[in-house]
Nucleic acid binder design. Structure first.
Lengths: 215, 215
DNA sequence: ATTATTGGGTAGTTGGACTATCCAATAATG
DNA sequence: CATTATTGGATAGTCCAACTACCCAATAAT
């Protein structure tokens, strides 16, 4: 297919497709002449990946890093996965002084290794710092409950990772990390509302147990 | 305290504090004269809240909506909580045609009510659509496991919600929704790495079971 | 032969979030 | 009380990311 069909099929404006090509987010088509190039289903997939990540709020330069890893996983698989995860939001600007005390506390309590070089450790530290700044805390109870359930979820994630090819594994890991997160987030919010509805209904705090929520 | 002390104490640049005042994110100080106003610990807290939400990527107009709810919860508590959650990211632009088939499938399988007016339903639908667009799927197995663990986490969240005052409850609910999410996200990523390290080590896929991950 | 489309490039737009500057009124200080 | 600093209030400017629009000469399509 040619570029305009690629744009039409993915719903991405032509100007934007060209922009992505320029930015290196989308690999060039197979040029058949000076003014013509052919695009494949690979390009459709890639465009879908870019858009999927962009919708989740990933800045383009981070997306570029991710697709770069998907394209060229030269390191060992585990390192590639780590790199990919590190490229995902949230972004922690200052690597800090090398110590993340809040994250360390969590990990030690959960019996996981504390490895300051893991990007997710810095992410956890930042999240915990934000919590503190807002006057909330991470109690032991919460650590234990969150930790247990999250670990079970993570175990399933790994179990369901495809192992057909390294490329497939990397791509699925990156995509899965980025794309199942909002699913979990939305499910948690819905669970809150589901459980809260029962609580409030029992309270008599509101006359109507099924309360509507404006958009 | 005066405005410059407020800025100094929170670490927010003075110009930005003024900007937040103009935008209505921060309530005005108690004016003692034409060129002087006193700010309280309330202002410090509010500034912390605004910053905490901003760091998580919330655009200012959404933050304004959230603090508006915290300030003036005129509806019943459950509706206020729903509104607050609806104001949080991700943002789903098109309310759609009113049906969210993918989200409906999940909720029905989990035995939760499908209420299209809940903002989180649209969020779930969008997340599932992004998954599909990228060629991933939400299997029944995944629904069941995610659903069970997420529900337990949500139950704890509700249990730990303060009930001292309505204001405290609303504020904690909003903050908790926004600020515990990145904690869970980071914990899941760390669990992935923790579990993956064991898997790969057992594989012999890499010579070193403890693999470092570049920044 | 004529019209449409392409790849490639440059420049302009939009929106969000600040940041800088100015000003007249008032506080603080010696 | 004279001088210096700070304040609230407002306006305008900056910076960045992510597009979007336009132009062009070379080819394809009809």
């Amino acid at each position: 297919m040619r570029i305009s069909e690629l744009a039409a099929r993915t719903g991405v404006p032509l100007a934007t497709v060209k922009f992505y090509l320029r930015e290196g987010l989308l690999m060039p088509g197979n040029a058949t002449s000076a003014t013509q190039a052919v695009y494949s289903d690979e390009h459709v997939r890639r465009l879908g990946l870019v858009r999927a990540l962009a919708v989740q709020g990933l800045p383009l330069h981070k997306i570029k890093a991710v697709v770069g890893l998907v394209d060229d996983p030269r390191d060992d698989l585990f390192a590639v996965l780590g790199n990919a995860i590190a490229a995902l939001p949230p972004y922690v600007d200052p690597p800090g002084d090398g110590d993340y005390p809040r994250a360390r506390r969590i990990l030690e309590r959960l019996g996981q290794v504390y490895e300051p070089d893991f990007a997710a450790v810095a992410q956890l530290e930042q999240a915990l710092a934000a919590l503190e700044a807002a006057g909330l805390e991470m109690s032991d109870r919460r650590i234990d409950v969150y930790g247990r359930h999250i670990r079970d979820i993570a175990a399933l994630d790994l179990e369901l990772l495809p192992t057909a090819s390294r490329r497939a594994t990397v791509e699925a890991a990156v995509l899965g990390t980025a794309l199942y997160e909002p699913v979990l987030t939305a499910m948690r919010r819905l669970a809150h509302q589901h459980l809260a509805a029962r609580l409030f209904a029992g309270d008599g705090d509101t006359s109507d147990p099924i309360v509507q929520e404006p958009q």
